[in-house]
Simulated assay, not measured.
Amino acid sequence: MGANPPCASCKLLRRRCGKDCIFAPYFPSDDPHKFALVHKVFGASNVSKMLLELPVHQRADAVSSLVFEAGARVRDPVYGCVGAISHLQNQVSQLKMQLAVAQAEILCIRMQQEEALASLLPLTCF
């Protein structure tokens, strides 16, 4: 095996982890859950193909995206990330509505205060 422990992928798949292992840089042995999740949703072969098609500088971001999507798919098998995004968009819409109501209430209070203040001031004639 060598000095380095096998990556999470090779450990889970019971393979020998060589220097050229496509998974080793992105799925360290101390975080096996990450690969297990991605493997469960996408399969090791598909993930390997995806990573090999990408330039090396984009692979870490791709792995992060795959881990996120796999987690979302486990939580919501039908919609995955789209379900989470839709839920967040609905929350944003609701919060915008609440903000608009609060701003309208502030405007009404300010107008009432100005009216009350104006009624207290003596009228001056020119």
Rank of each mutant, 00 (worst) to 15 (best):
M1Q: 06
G2N: 10
N4M: 07
P5E: 03
P6Q: 00
A8S: 14
A8Y: 00
C10I: 05
K11D: 12
L12V: 05
R14A: 11
R14K: 15
R14S: 14
R14C: 03
C17H: 08
G18K: 04
G18T: 10
K19G: 14
K19A: 11
D20M: 03
I22M: 07
F23G: 03
P25K: 01
P25E: 02
Y26D: 02
F27S: 02
P28N: 00
S29L: 00
D31I: 14
D31Y: 04
H33A: 15
H33G: 15
K34L: 12
K34M: 08
F35P: 09
V38G: 04
V38D: 04
H39G: 02
H39L: 01
H39D: 15
K40D: 08
K40Y: 13
V41H: 01
G43C: 07
G43H: 08
A44Q: 11
A44F: 01
S45P: 00
S45T: 14
V47G: 03
K49A: 13
M50I: 14
P55Y: 03
V56A: 12
Q58N: 10
R59Y: 00
R59W: 00
R59A: 00
A60S: 14
D61M: 09
D61I: 04
D61R: 09
A62P: 05
V63S: 03
V63Y: 09
S64V: 01
L66V: 06
V67H: 05
E69S: 14
A70R: 06
A70K: 09
A70D: 05
G71W: 01
A72F: 01
A72D: 09
R73T: 07
R73C: 11
R75H: 05
D76N: 15
D76F: 08
V78Y: 08
V78F: 05
V78R: 14
Y79D: 14
Y79N: 15
G80K: 06
G80C: 09
A84N: 10
I85T: 06
S86Y: 10
S86K: 11
S86H: 13
H87W: 08
H87A: 10
L88Y: 13
L88F: 13
Q89P: 04
V92Q: 13
V92G: 02
S93W: 04
K96D: 11
Q98W: 03
L99S: 08
A100N: 10
V101N: 05
V101P: 01
A102S: 08
Q103S: 09
A104Q: 12
A104K: 13
E105M: 12
I106S: 05
I109P: 02
I109T: 10
I109Y: 07
R110M: 08
R110A: 15
R110G: 10
M111R: 13
Q113L: 14
Q113G: 07
Q113A: 13
E115A: 12
A116F: 07
A116Q: 14
A116E: 14
L117Y: 08
L117G: 03
A118L: 11
A118R: 15
S119T: 04
L120A: 09
L121M: 13
P122N: 04
P122H: 02
T124K: 15
C125T: 10
F126D: 06
F126Q: 07
